[in-house]
Each structure stands twice: as structure tokens, then as C-alpha cells.
Amino acid sequence: MTDQPVTDTGVRDAIARLRVEVAALHAELPANDLVVWTAGNVSARVPGADLLVIKPSGVRYDELTPEAMVVCDFDGQLVQGERAPSSDTAAHAYVYRHLPEVGGVVHTHSTYATAWAARREPIPCVLTMMADEFGGDIPVGPFAVIGDDSIGRGLVETLAGTRSRAVLMANHGPFTVGPTAKAAVKSAVMCEEVARTVHIARQLGEPTPIEPALIDSLHDRYQNVYGQR
């Protein structure tokens, strides 16, 4: 067990809160058919510290209690927890290190989004839901090996050229980001939904892209007007 003391009371409280939140958000992945067995992960940035909360590697979803969550630094090293962190921790850590606006990162192997990733094909913006949430096409990131920060580098490079909160890493699967972990999970759910819908549409014919000006208008409204403020 690794248990490095955190002296700041606010950071300790944030870690305790995020352990509960991240554990609960992991339950949303199988509930929305985004993962099988132990695949996938959710992480959250710890406010006020260069730390993240993430699930341990290879642990079934029904075992992911708040106590099971692990805390790592932005080099991907375990700081608190009894188990080895997710194999994608280095990728998550790289994103947090380079994109300070990101508060949550999610990775799934959801069926339809991963099928697009296997083809290395962006999902075209042919739905208002895509314009709303992603601001355009969902792009494809480069092929990268698992276990170091290669995936994180590919994610940051791809996100720099898009408004999308989702990236389809080539031959791997979708990663999503958000200002919070909950927002990143929402984007993961919506990414799979539009991947499925656009795939079905293509079986019937070629979908019609939405004009760029309309995409801009839809995205601005959804991000700045829609919902409760």
C-alpha cells in the first residue's frame, strides 16, 4: 500500500469527495453499455494539487468502491491506494499536465465509437446533437501504445485542432474530456450515441453534413444558453 500524506486540508477533503464521485461515475460506463469486463476508466483532477483520482487496473466494476479508487500524481505515479492504477493513468496524467482547463478524462471501448476508431475515420457532423456537444466532427487521433504517455500526447495534439471533447484514438477507442469528470462521462455517452446513429444513417445512404455556420450557432447555443444557469 502507498499512502503519502496530504497535508492540505482542502486537498484531503477534495480527494475524499472525488473518490466517491469517481466511483459512482464508473458505474455509469457499464450502465450505458460503454465497457465490458474491466475495460475503460474515469479520472478526475484534484483541485489545488497536481493529483488525479482514477480506478485501479483490472478491477471489476462491481468492486469499484470509493475506497478502491487510487490517487496519482501528474507523472502517473501512485500516491495513495492499495492497488496499481489503471494502465491508462499516464495518458490521463499527460492531459491534466498540459490542459489545465480539463477536470475529467474518460476512456471507453464502446462498440460503435471504437468501430469508427478501427477504421481511423472521423465521425462527420451530420446531427444537431454532434454540433451541440462536440462543435463539429469527432476527430481521429494517432495510433499510440498503451502504458506510457504516448496516448496522452496524441490526445493533446488532436484536441488542439478541434472543439470536440471526444477523440477516437486510432485502432483503440474513444477518449473524452470535460471541465469535470461528470461532463467527460456525459461526452462519452453522447459520443457512442452519435457514433451508432451516424453508422445506421450510412446504411441507408450518405448523411448530409450540417453547414459550418449552423454548427457554430448550434454549439454556441448549447454551450452558453441551453439548460439551467
Rank of each mutant, 00 (worst) to 15 (best):
V106A: 05
A90R: 13
A14V: 03
R163Q: 06
I200V: 15
P30E: 02
V22I: 12
A27M: 15
H172N: 02
A115L: 07
K186A: 14
L218T: 06
G48M: 09
G40K: 04
L51R: 11
T180S: 15
G135R: 05
K55T: 09
G103E: 01
V102Q: 09
I215D: 00
A39S: 14
T180Q: 04
S217H: 11
A24P: 05
V167K: 09
F74Y: 13
M130P: 06
G136C: 01
T180L: 05
V35G: 08
T180H: 05
A170G: 13
D8I: 03
V36F: 00
L155I: 09
K55P: 01
A131D: 09
V225P: 07
H219A: 08
I123A: 01
D62G: 06
H172Y: 00
A93S: 08
I15L: 09
A131H: 05
R17N: 08
I200Q: 08
I15E: 03
L29A: 07
V6H: 05
A195F: 08
M169I: 15
A113Y: 06
A170Q: 08
G76C: 00
Y96D: 09
Y226P: 06
S43A: 08
A91W: 05
N224S: 12
H107E: 11
M130W: 02
L18A: 02
N224L: 10
L159V: 14
V53R: 04
I215C: 06
P85A: 06
F74V: 06
T7G: 11
P174G: 13
G58K: 07
A16H: 15
S217L: 12
Q228S: 12
D3M: 11
G227E: 11
E206R: 01
R153C: 09
P174T: 10
P179M: 13
E211S: 00
A195T: 04
A24C: 02
A115Q: 05
G135L: 01
R165G: 15
Y226H: 14
R202E: 14
V46S: 11
V42F: 08
S87T: 15
W37G: 10
R165D: 14
P47H: 07
P56E: 07
P100I: 05
G10Y: 07
R12H: 12
I138T: 03
A113L: 00
A184M: 00
S43M: 08
Q77W: 11
N171K: 13
